[in-house]
Amino acid sequence: MFGKKKQQPQIDKEQLELIENAQKRIKQKKRLYAHFVLFLIGCVLIIAANTVLGIGKDFTIAGINWFVYAILIWLFLFLYHLFNVFVTNKFMGKAWEQQQMEKLVAKQQHRIDQLKESFRKEEEIKAKSEVFNELNSSEAVETKKDSELTIIVAAAENDAIGRGNQLIWHLSDDLKRFKSLTSGHHIIMGRKTLESFPKPLPNRTHVVITRQRDYKAPEGVIIVHSLEDAIDAAKSDSQPFIIGGGQIYKQALSANLVDKIELTRVHEDFEADAFFPKIDTTIWKETNNVFNKKDAEHEHEFSFITYERI
């Protein structure tokens, strides 16, 4: 086809040189072999011409027939050819081998240098990536955190939240608020909190933390063995809630995992065996507070308070 470029050989210079030397060597040996065959045939013909045909039969030098000198001269030329092939022009001798070895070593060293440079660049990229991640760690956390983890709890003035794995009070509006806020969300709790329910709460996904590896829970309840695993199990929820008990609250607050606290503060002190941790106002800011008086359905005054992390 017109305009079609000649394909370049896919072979490096060292390999090409080796092939060319091998081809020259083969040609030399072929010519030497042809010379040897021609020498043998020529000797036979010279002898036959002298003895059978009688050519130069009477010509002698120092009493020796001329064909003997002719054969000796030709033998000398053949030996010279032989010497020239295997000694004088030995392409693949020690010097040639040493030259090829040096080329191979140089080529391998070049390859090693290239690999070192490649590794160095990879290390630089890795180091830059680690530095970038460190400098942008806070931004990365904000990007990764697509949900707002909220504690919801009802606590007395002395931070009492329960006794004997049961609520100490019954506040109708507090229960309605709990249902309204948590409905449709993941609720994270300890094993004892789950066992305080007659049955799992409707329209909520229960995530239960327990150290018991063989714990049997009702169908649909997610069992995990750490708070971190519980939060991971609720990562698809935009606002999962931690609902108790006391140790789970304490662990979540001490690990700085919580973004908001929805607190029902019951304005009275109670005897209890479970308590909510003290709220550190240097960390938490009160953003909403709704006071509720006692009435026929509520025997205690209480307030709905929202805290957000400063």
Rank of each mutant, 00 (worst) to 15 (best):
L167G: 04
W169R: 08
A155F: 11
R191M: 04
R211D: 00
S172E: 11
N136S: 10
Q166G: 14
D229I: 01
T193E: 02
L227C: 11
L181W: 00
D214H: 11
H185E: 15
S226N: 10
Q212D: 12
D173E: 15
V208S: 06
S180W: 09
Y215L: 00
P198E: 08
D214P: 00
A140E: 04
R191Q: 07
P198C: 09
I188T: 09
V208H: 02
E157G: 13
E139R: 13
D214A: 13
L227K: 03
E134S: 05
V224S: 01
N136T: 13
G164E: 12
H206M: 04
K192E: 12
Q166E: 08
P198Q: 08
K192W: 09
D173N: 07
E157C: 05
M189P: 00
I151Y: 12
S147T: 14
L175S: 00
S138H: 02
L181D: 08
K176T: 13
I209C: 08
K144L: 04
R204M: 15
Q212F: 10
L175F: 08
I168V: 12
V224L: 04
H185K: 14
I209L: 03
H225K: 08
E148M: 07
L135H: 07
T205H: 06
H225W: 00
N133Y: 08
R191H: 14
E139I: 14
A155Q: 15
I161F: 10
M189Q: 03
P218R: 13
M189D: 00
E148T: 15
Q166F: 09
E195H: 05
D229N: 05
T193R: 11
D146N: 14
N158W: 15
I152D: 13
Q166M: 12
I222T: 15
D229R: 01
I222R: 04
L171P: 02
S138G: 06
N136Q: 03
H185S: 03
T193I: 01
L171A: 03
E142Y: 13
F197I: 10
T193F: 02
I209F: 05
E139Q: 09
S183R: 13
A156R: 06
S196V: 00
D174G: 07
T143Q: 09
G184V: 03
N136G: 02
T210S: 11
I151Q: 07
D214C: 00
L194I: 10
H225L: 12
L175R: 03
T150W: 06
S226G: 09
A154F: 07
T150P: 12
R163Q: 09
I223Y: 04
N203A: 08
T210W: 04
T150C: 09
I222G: 02
I187Q: 00
H186L: 11
V141S: 10
L181F: 06
I152F: 14
T205K: 06
S138F: 01
A140F: 12
I161E: 11
I187G: 11
K176M: 15
K192H: 11
T210Y: 01
R163K: 15
S196Q: 08
M189I: 04
E139A: 11
I188C: 01
D173L: 07
N165F: 05
A156P: 13
